[in-house]
Computed example of a mutant assay.
Amino acid sequence: MKIEQEIKHTFDSPQQRALTNIIFTSNWVLNRIAAALKPTNLSLQQFNVLSILHGQPEQTATVNLITERLIDRMPNTSRLLNKLMDKGLIEKEKNTNDQRVVYIKLTPEGAILKQQARSIINSVLVNLEDKEADILNELLEKVRS
């Protein structure tokens, strides 16, 4: 459906339409993913942390590395990590040489839940062929350049 029909609005320019369409579509995708993740009791930001850790050597990273790599950099990283720790999905370890450095490690339970959530997210398909997805990726990267 066209964005004008979705939000019942006319735009002054193609640029304004494109920007609104990006924001609207982003929220639409985020809502679909959030609904799909509901059975895991994970937010998209929590899943992002588990994914970052999963891709690190020994599934361990510093808080700073996690913060730098988050897709949504708005949340309070410490609060996010505390919620994951309360769920038993990560562990915190202080560096013995430098008490300011905290290492975050993925627990076996966290690794299993991350894999389950990845399968769920992979099932949330967008209605695009691979070539169309490649073109969309190039255009979105151009917007950010």
Rank of each mutant, 00 (worst) to 15 (best):
N64V: 08
T62Y: 07
P14S: 05
L89H: 14
V29C: 12
K83H: 12
I112K: 15
L50S: 06
K2S: 09
Q99E: 11
L128W: 03
R100W: 06
V126Y: 10
E132Y: 05
N95Q: 07
K105E: 08
L81G: 07
Q115W: 03
Q115Y: 01
L37N: 06
L70E: 06
Q45A: 15
V124E: 05
L136Q: 02
Q56P: 00
T62H: 03
L30T: 10
I33L: 15
K38M: 08
K38F: 08
V102G: 02
L125C: 02
G88T: 08
E58P: 00
I90V: 15
N21D: 11
L136V: 10
I135C: 04
N82Q: 12
E138N: 11
V29S: 09
A117K: 04
L50K: 05
L125D: 01
D134Y: 12
T60V: 09
L84N: 01
T107I: 09
K114R: 15
S43G: 09
E68W: 00
K38G: 02
V143Y: 11
E6L: 02
S123Y: 04
L113W: 06
S43E: 12
T77G: 02
Q116L: 15
A35E: 13
V63K: 09
Q16W: 00
A34V: 04
S119C: 01
R118S: 15
L140N: 00
T25W: 00
N76L: 14
Y103Q: 03
Q116H: 15
G55K: 13
I112G: 01
V29W: 08
I23M: 10
E93W: 01
V143K: 08
T62D: 09
I104C: 07
A34T: 14
V101G: 01
W28K: 15
L19C: 05
S26D: 03
E141V: 01
A61T: 02
E93C: 01
G88E: 03
N21R: 06
I120T: 09
I23P: 02
V124D: 05
N82W: 06
I7R: 00
S51W: 07
Q16K: 12
G55A: 15
I121E: 05
Q99I: 09
Q59W: 05
N76Q: 12
S43A: 11
A18D: 03
K38N: 07
K83G: 11
E68Q: 13
Q15V: 04
V63D: 04
K38R: 14
K114N: 14
S43F: 06
H54R: 07
E129I: 02
T60D: 06
F11P: 01
A117V: 03
K92G: 10
